[in-house]
Design a protein around this nucleic acid. Structure first.
Length: 326
DNA sequence: AACTTTTTCAACCGCGCAGGA
DNA sequence: ATCCTGCGCGGTTGAAAAAGT
């Protein structure tokens, strides 16, 4: 990190400091927020409180100092599901997705997603025979215990892992920005999404076992089986044993599950889904990369999930205070 | 135990929008 | 109508920690 002085707009202001925050800086920032609320970020520097840009201050607050954050907690299975579904629905609107996840920041969601993208990429590369034209994949199975019933060359090397830019499908909003006011208090009051096509966030999505389940958020998923990922899973097929880890929301109580990845949106592939070496056709929809990594099957520890935190709007500020056990 | 690889997390950057002057 | 400033968002990077060999 090159601490460049930056042409700090005002001559008297100290050079902008970058890099990791110190406890002292945190304290100053917290004090500022206590006194003024989470705003006036730029005044922090202009008043000489901290040699940090307003931007940096805001980021620090939002991502680290906010009292309602679930820091240090891995994403629960339910959270993962929400992220995956919403990403399919909204694209990379991390801030918006985060509004559905109390205690999570857009940065959390973003990091989570990119981590999984990387993991998937690696897994697929490892798992899938590289069959190039004219070269048969004879050697592949030797290094992998599982055999993949490949039906068609998935050309995985060409999968455009689009975590970065491509929304799975556009929701038609040209501006990703929510109304400012809504944004501003997102953390504290949970979201009030600007209308558009999505349902209001929090209530249904973190349903656990059904209660309060979803405002019909989706266009898809006529049945829960649409969400059932793996009929040929090579990690945990046996373990699955009829349990759909992703759809533990009782379909009866939640007749309208979250949107599934609609056909053609799996990593930008059209027509067919590529799934760890085999191609799934649209009628097998519901495949999502989340199913791939072994740890996904931590799902079977789901019973440990906290009893529906009732992630309703507003639960964020109160109930989620402090660092609760994950 | 040492080394390598992978994952996680924190922070920065650039861009675009909104509101005020 | 235009410019300026502040803020929020999404993408990216890099260091530290954890896991694997």
């Amino acid at each position: 990190m090159k601490p460049r002085g930056g042409r700090g707009g005002g001559g008297e202001q100290p050079a902008v400091r970058k890099g990791p925050w110190t406890a002292e800086e945190d304290e100053v920032l917290l004090r500022h927020v206590r006194e003024h609320g989470p705003r006036e970020w730029s005044s922090i520097r202009s008043k000489g409180l901290l040699p940090r840009t307003g931007k940096s201050c805001r980021l620090r607050w939002v991502n680290k100092l906010r009292p309602d954050l679930k820091t240090g907690c891995k994403f629960s299975a339910e959270e993962e599901r929400v992220v995956i579904d919403l990403q399919a629905q909204l694209g990379n609107k991390w801030a918006r997705i985060a509004t559905y996840l109390p205690g999570r920041t857009d940065n959390d969601v973003k990091n989570f997603w990119s981590t999984r993208q990387k993991r998937l990429a690696r897994l697929l590369r490892a798992a899938v025979p590289r069959r190039r034209p004219g070269k048969q994949s004879g050697s592949v199975s030797s290094s992998h215990a599982y055999e993949l019933p490949t039906q068609k060359d998935p050309c995985l090397d060409m999968i455009p892992f689009q975590g970065t830019t491509t929304p799975a499908h556009h929701t038609g909003e040209s501006s990703s920005h929510e109304p400012r006011a809504a944004n501003q208090h997102r953390a504290a009051n949970a979201p009030s999404l600007g209308a558009h096509s999505l349902p209001p966030p929090p209530v249904p999505l973190l349903t656990h076992g059904g209660a309060g389940a979803g405002h019909g958020s989706s266009s898809a998923a006529p049945t829960s089986t649409a969400l059932l990922p793996f009929d040929g899973d090579y990690y945990a097929r046996d373990a699955v044993a009829g349990v759909d880890p992703l759809v533990f929301v009782d379909p009866a109580a939640c007749p309208e599950p979250l949107a599934v990845v609609p056909p053609g949106t799996f990593f930008g592939l059209d027509d067919d889904y590529v799934h760890a070496g085999r191609v799934l056709h649209p009628d097998e929809s519901g495949v999502r990369f989340d199913d791939l990594p072994p740890e996904t099957f931590d799902f079977f520890e789901l019973p440990h999930l906290p009893p529906s935190p009732s992630p309703t709007v507003g639960s964020l500020s109160g109930a989620d205070k402090g660092q609760k056990p994950c």
